[in-house]
């Protein structure tokens, strides 16, 4: 079918737990797409990833039909998982909550490479390291 893209949006939704509540309702409602069907399809597709927050990019076509692709979890979620912490520091410049090895930043960058606006893994890892520092996570450049 002749699919002309009218808009797009990325949401972060717990796997298998999408509902019409925010962000799904207000973000997709303005495009006039079938929210119940999106919720059903997203939950079916991500049922096996329960417990993870899944970024999903929804593409809306000119006749209000849609398609979506799920992406890798957000960098802050992967950093918290790698450091085994539940939340970021409230005062990251003075209160450090964990240390992440540079090698782990590179692993996260590799995993997220197709979603990052980075030219190579090294620059992707530097973006991940910046995210880690903003969360009060120190970066150990020697490991």
């Amino acid at each position: 079918m002749a699919q002309k893209i009218a808009g797009y949006v990325k949401l972060q939704i717990p796997a298998g737990q999408a509902t019409p509540a925010p962000p799904v309702g207000p973000a997709l409602g303005q495009h006039g797409i079938n929210i119940s069907q999106f919720v059903k399809e997203f939950n079916e597709k991500t049922a096996s990833q329960q417990g993870l927050i899944i970024p999903v990019v929804i593409t809306v076509f000119a006749d209000r039909s849609f398609t979506f692709i799920t992406k890798t979890p957000p960098a802050p979620v992967l950093i918290k998982k790698a450091c085994n912490i539940h939340k970021a520091s409230g005062r990251p410049n003075v209160e450090k909550v964990a240390t992440i090895p540079w090698s782990e930043c590179k692993k996260i960058a590799e995993l997220k490479m197709k979603d990052l606006n980075a030219s190579d893994v090294e620059s992707g890892a530097r973006m991940v390291a910046g995210t880690a520092r903003s969360m009060g996570v120190l970066v150990d450049m020697d490991s």
């Binding site: 949401l11 972060q12 962000p23």
Partner: peptide, 26 residues
């Protein structure tokens, strides 16, 4: 993504992002 994470920690009920890289990938 970092700002989205912060707003969730501040009590946001959800976030939506428009990032050109996402639609380019599509």
């Amino acid at each position: 993504e970092v700002i989205a994470e912060s707003l969730i920690a501040m009590g946001a009920r959800g976030t939506a992002v428009q990032n050109p890289a996402d639609i380019l990938a599509v």
